[in-house]
Simulated scan of single mutants.
Amino acid sequence: MSTDAGQRLTPSTIALLIIPPLMWAGNAVVGRMMQGVVPPITLNFLRWGLALLILLPVAGWVLRPGSELWPHWKRFALLGLLGVGLYNALQYMALKTSTPINVTLVSAATPIWMLLLGRLFFGVRVSRQAAVGAALSLSGVATVLARGDITQLLSVRLVPGDAWMLAASFIWATYSWLLARPKPGAEPAAIKADWAAFLLAQMVFGLVWSGTMTTGEWLWLGSQPGETASHITWGWPLAAALVYVAVGPSLLAYRCWGAGVSRVGPTIAGFFSNLTPLFAAVMSATLLGEMPQLFHAAGFALIVSGILVSTRR
């Protein structure tokens, strides 16, 4: 796997790296809509439970006794904790007190975490053009956050949800590096060659982590005055939301992200995650009946410029 900043981006690789932020933007909007319908950690558990049921018919062999998964369970348990159990749970928790645009904007810190973790733990040098690309991409995010008026940045106040999302972006960067740089022999060839089996292997452990956290959430809610531990509003809105988050952000996005990271490495892939707030802004505006503004185009241009600068030969 290459993490070289000069890795060429082919059209197919660009498509692989654009689909995940598009799906994740929709995930943030849907997660915000589900506040008050289902508790956030419970939503994460239901999401991955449904995704696991979808994958079982095509990759269930990986869970059979004698599978190569079990001798390597520690590796997949760690990936499941970070990518399935923690990251999305923290994002849904963040959406309780923050908006989809704010949450996805805060997650734009991911490329910075990618660069720092790569330098500190994987010996990857931070090139000048990677640093310039990061600055350009983040300036694009700032343009969207400020709605085209940079002076508005001075009035931004972080809420608890933004802090949760900052922690989530660090976890995602760690997950991506572990995905890209496995130790020799840490991943059986048969599982690694089958994306569905590879994801299912993470899911089965991630659901254990998520189920444990969901139990804690219900116990905590049950101890709060005026809270109902089992407050879930069942109906078609929740059903539609679960289908979307289980298929789009879970299966499709993870498949494309894993393939994209394997081609260009987590550092370059991290720049594409900065497209998420732009997509979230457009989706949020559409749902509110507002058309995208000029500053959305300006932010998009800066973000794409950062991607091109960081990856050009």
Rank of each mutant, 00 (worst) to 15 (best):
M203Q: 12
Q293V: 02
V84S: 06
L120E: 00
A28P: 02
L219K: 15
N274V: 13
L116R: 08
A167N: 11
G66K: 02
T174F: 10
A297P: 08
S155M: 06
Q7P: 00
M213K: 06
P225K: 10
T3D: 14
A246I: 06
L22Q: 05
I18C: 04
L288C: 01
L275N: 11
A259Y: 09
A193S: 15
G140V: 10
L242R: 06
A269W: 14
L95P: 10
T214W: 12
D149F: 01
A25H: 09
T143N: 02
L86G: 10
R125K: 02
T214S: 11
A281N: 08
L136C: 08
S223R: 05
Q7V: 05
V304N: 02
N27S: 09
E290K: 08
G306N: 09
A239P: 03
G31A: 07
I101P: 00
N88F: 14
A280G: 04
A180W: 14
L145T: 05
G260L: 08
V264D: 09
N27I: 01
A189G: 02
F45S: 06
L22N: 04
G140L: 12
A241G: 00
L287F: 06
I41P: 05
T212D: 03
V124G: 04
F279C: 00
V103T: 13
A5M: 06
T233I: 14
K192Q: 10
V309M: 04
F205P: 11
V282Y: 12
T212E: 07
G299L: 00
A196V: 11
A297Y: 11
P21S: 05
E68C: 06
V84T: 13
W73A: 14
P160V: 08
I101K: 02
I18D: 01
A241F: 00
L79N: 01
L79E: 09
N274A: 13
L138F: 11
L138H: 04
L138N: 05
L9G: 01
A94G: 10
